[in-house]
Structures are given as C-alpha cells and as structure tokens.
Write a protein that binds this DNA or RNA. Structure first.
Lengths: 196, 196
DNA sequence: GCTAAAAACAAGCAAGCGCTTGTTTTTTTG
DNA sequence: CAAAAAAACAAGCGCTTGCTTGTTTTTAGC
C-alpha cells in the first residue's frame, strides 16, 4: 500500500480504537492489526504511539478552529453568528466523530509540550466563543449573563453529542444543531412560566 | 490501619488517579503508593483492579439516583422540580468530583456484566429526567420540544461541570446550578430577539 | 499480656507492553 | 527489466503490568 494511504488508514483506525478503548487501553498491536500490518511495520510510518495521539488530536483542534473562526470573525448579528457557529461545531463533531472524541477525551494523555500545544489551541477556540458572547451581550441581543457560564454551558451541551450521536440516525447534523440552538436561545420554559 | 479506613483510603486515592490518568493509565503500583502500602498489600483489600473501578462507578451512580429520584418522583410543578433536580445533580458532581468523573468517563472500561449493571443504572437515571420533562410539557410549563434532545442537552450541559469546576472557586454548587437553570429555562436571547 | 487474626511486606512470575533490529518482499523509477 | 527505495515481516529485547505466594509485623479480643 502506498505510503500516504497507509498512514491515513493507521490514523483512521487509531482514532476509532482510541475513541472506543482510550489511548492507554489501546495497544500498538491493536492498531497494527486493524491496519492490516504487523506491529513492527507501524514504525515505518510513525515514530511513536504518542505521535499518533498528537496528530489525531491536533487535526481535531484544527477542524474546529477552521470551521468556526471565519463565522465568528465574520459579519452579521450575534444571534445569527451563534446559530451558524453552533451548526459548524456540531458538523465537525458529526463529520469527525472519532477524532472529535479523542480531542475531547484523550488529549490529557499527551506529555508536556504537546499537551501544552493542544491546550493553547483549546484556549484559542474558547476565546472565539467568548468573543461572540460578549459581542452579543453588548449588542443587546443576548441577555446579560455571566459570559463564562454561558460559554461553558453551550460548549458542554454540544460536546455531549459525541456520546450519543449515531451517524445513521434520523436527524442530520444541521437539524441537531438547530434544535440545540433553539432551546439554548429561547429557553425551555414558556414565556408565561415563572422562569428566572 | 483498620480495615475499613484503609479500604476507603484506597477507593479515594484510586478515584483521584482514575480521574487524572484514566483507568488504563493508572497502575496498581500508583494506587498502592498513593495509599501508603506496597502493591501486593492492596490485594488484602481488593480482589482486582477492576473491582475498584466498579465500586467507584457504582457508588457514583447511586449518588445520582438517590439524590435526584426523590425530587423527580415527589410533589411540585415541573419547573420547580427541574430546578431542584439540577441543583441536586450539580451537588453530586461537586461533592464527589473524582467519583463523578470516573462515572462519566471510565465506566466503559468495565467488562461485560459489570458494564451492563452500570448501563442499567444510567438508563434508569436518564429515565427519571425523561419523566420530568414529559411531565413538564404535559403540564404546559415547558415548551413542546423533542424530549430526548432537551434531556441530553441538559445533562450534557451539567456534566461539562466536572471538566472546569474548581472546589475552591468563588461560586457555590447551588449558585452554579441556579445559573445553569436560569439560562436553560429562560434562554440566552432577549425576548425581542429573533429567537426560534 | 498472650494469642489468633488481620494487615503489610518482600520477592517474583507470567503475560503483555512499546519499540528495535536484521531480513525479505513489494513497489517505484530510470 | 534491473537497481534503488519503500514497505512489510519475523523475532525478540528490556521493561512494566496485574497479581500471587510465603513470611513477618501489627492489631485486637480475652
């Protein structure tokens, strides 16, 4: 098998295994078997097991950043941008379910420098959402709530997706994201309810 | 050290290690060292490493069930019960941060039967929330949205807590839960916004 | 305070781990 | 189609893993 194709196959299989069994729960032999080669042959393509984890995690981070940044930094009112950003975020999760899970769950198994590199991208990503929320509150289209609370609530709610989303389910990622956005923006309670 | 105290210390240290390094990333020697004994001595108190994981996870499940069940099955309107249930859920997380994390993250590393036992309790717990949401929609105090979406959104949002909550922070668990409830019930957008 | 039980130690086993080395097979390239 | 390069194999090394065994120390009940 040509070099690039094999490397991609290894990354894909490793993503699935890391997602299902965790980084420490997955062995080099698991990965090589799933990739259709012997364990020693893996090392013609990777330098270490942790290299795999880093590459998967870093690609995950880049997917999120590149999908959402242009929306948040672009033009439009905050509510529209929030909806678009949520759809984009959800689509990254549903399009790259394994990599997204590894990005959320397993990045802490990276050692010092690489862990720090991912942390930096995570911070950058959270910063984008913070910017959007502050903008929306200043514009007056969002209620004035604690920005950090709202941000973590939104991101947590969406990230829960990777635990239950099934690619062959009935809803498209866009439908999922828009339902989430609807509940988060308009709230669960009826207007006449005693909410807040 | 007397038997019960040692066992509790082992469970406590194991919870912390499983939380920080994961089940597969934690060794028996890590746990024994943290507990102040040699690795062989552990086996006077436990039968296997997986026993530890199961006991921690099962206790976590019971905490959630026993805190939230009486609220949801008790009297009151759905909005009040939702607020109370959210406070209870958040308090379980903040009071048992390690065990809750293990319950959320590491239960999948259990083998067949025990994994299934935990799955059953998870289903039971989700069922309680489903019941509350359906009740609220029938009463008319919640908007009629897809119950499953709303339930998973609420639980995901709250469960994100264990990733950023710091016990020595400024907010009490009750304040955290009530802010979450406020946003989820009333929504992020202003009434005059183009929400929905 | 003696003694039986409980708890901890000291040593190590078998299996599995990540990874390396030396060789063979396959692919690419002129 | 031959030579060089890439990919895969076969074997195994050094180390760590979860756990066991035989012994010593500590604790608790009379």
């Amino acid at each position: 098998m040509p070099k690039v194709a094999r490397k991609e196959k290894i990354l894909e299989k490793a993503s699935g295994l890391f997602r299902n069994k965790g980084y420490h729960g997955t062995t080099i032999r698991d990965i090589s078997e799933a990739s259709g080669i012997l364990s020693g042959s893996l090392y013609a393509h990777i330098r270490s097991k942790e290299d795999l984890l880093f590459e998967i995690t870093d690609r995950g981070a880049e997917h999120f950043l590149q999908s959402v940044r242009p929306i948040i930094e672009g033009e439009g009112d905050a509510i529209t941008k929030l909806r678009k950003a949520m759809v984009a975020h959800v689509q990254v999760i549903t399009d790259h379910l394994e990599a997204a899970t590894v990005f959320f769950h397993e990045w802490k198994s990276l050692t010092d420098e690489r862990r720090h590199m991912i942390q930096t991208k995570r911070d950058e990503y959270e910063g984008l959402w913070a910017q959007l929320l502050v903008e929306g509150m200043n514009e007056g289209c969002f209620r004035k709530v604690d920005e950090k609370f709202a941000r973590l609530l939104i991101l947590s709610a969406m990230n829960g997706l990777y635990q239950w989303y099934q690619p062959d389910g009935e809803q498209t990622p866009i439908e999922v994201a828009e339902r989430y956005a609807s509940i988060l923006l308009a709230g669960l309670a009826h207007r006449e309810g005693s909410a807040l």
